[in-house]
Amino acid sequence: MSSVTGRENFARKNRQFCLVEESCSMDKKNPQERILETANKLFYSQGYNTTGINQVLSESGAHKLSLYKYFPSKTDLGKAYLREQKEAILNLLRSLFQQKEDPRDMIHSWVKILIRQARRNDFHGCPLANFSTQTLDSKEEFHKELNVVLKEWLELIASYFERCKEKGTLDKMTDAARLARKLISIYEGNIQLYLISGKIEDLQNIESDFLELKELKNLIPSKTISMNKEANKALR
């Protein structure tokens, strides 16, 4: 594996959302890839409604004929964007779930990724929630895609919690599906607070609010949590 490929793999694992790969030259990609990568970047950073087709074409270096060949309308490009974001989110979670058998360690790592993005001004909120609010006037066109994303997101998290129950890192009586919904609610709520306040603490609260849930409070402390407490004591 080349060093460039290694850097790209590292970047993918440490980014929550699928933006343009910085190490890949746009002129090496075909028009469809360039258009979609540019749309991913612009829709996420500045919004679906405020991004025009002409800007996508200009920044991707693609021709209008190429755009309409692959994406007959802006709506089709928006749906492709949602599918890309869905895969980016699910891939990140799969990686976290594979590495972290304890849900408390998992949420700690997830929040660290969000904070790292925020500190480099690379985090603009949840792309799915943003897109949903930006397309309220045309919600029916994207309703199916948005619901598919949410369904698969919840199912993946619930299946992870089921595995945690089997491994003993969650109580066997835990309702995995309900806990998954609680986690997403905490995640989305604190992200909205962060977008309003600009305070990193609101992202940190994703972890603390999750750990305050009754399903987590009575568990044996994980190694990560114990290490964090010791580090905090040393700083006092």
Rank of each mutant, 00 (worst) to 15 (best):
V4H: 06
A11F: 13
L19W: 00
E21N: 11
E21I: 11
S23G: 15
C24I: 13
K29G: 02
I35F: 03
I35N: 00
E37G: 08
T38V: 05
K41A: 13
T51A: 05
T51E: 05
I53C: 03
H63G: 11
K64F: 03
S66Y: 04
S66T: 08
S66P: 02
L67P: 06
D76P: 05
L82V: 04
Q85G: 05
Q85W: 02
K86L: 05
L90N: 09
L93K: 07
S95V: 05
Q98G: 10
E101K: 12
D105H: 08
M106P: 00
I107L: 06
S109A: 14
K112L: 07
L114M: 06
R119F: 11
R120E: 15
N121E: 15
H124W: 15
H124R: 11
G125M: 04
G125T: 04
T133Y: 10
Q134E: 14
L136S: 12
K139V: 14
E140G: 10
E141F: 07
F142D: 01
L146A: 04
L146R: 08
N147Y: 10
V148M: 11
L150I: 13
E152W: 03
L156F: 05
A158P: 07
S159A: 12
Y160S: 00
E162V: 10
C164F: 06
K167P: 01
G168R: 08
T169K: 05
T169Y: 10
L170W: 02
D175I: 09
A177P: 00
I184W: 02
S185A: 12
Y187C: 01
Y187P: 00
G189Y: 01
Y194H: 06
D202N: 12
Q204V: 06
I206K: 00
E212P: 03
L213K: 01
L213F: 04
L219V: 10
P221L: 07
S226V: 06
K233L: 13
K233T: 09
L235D: 10
R236A: 13
R236Y: 09
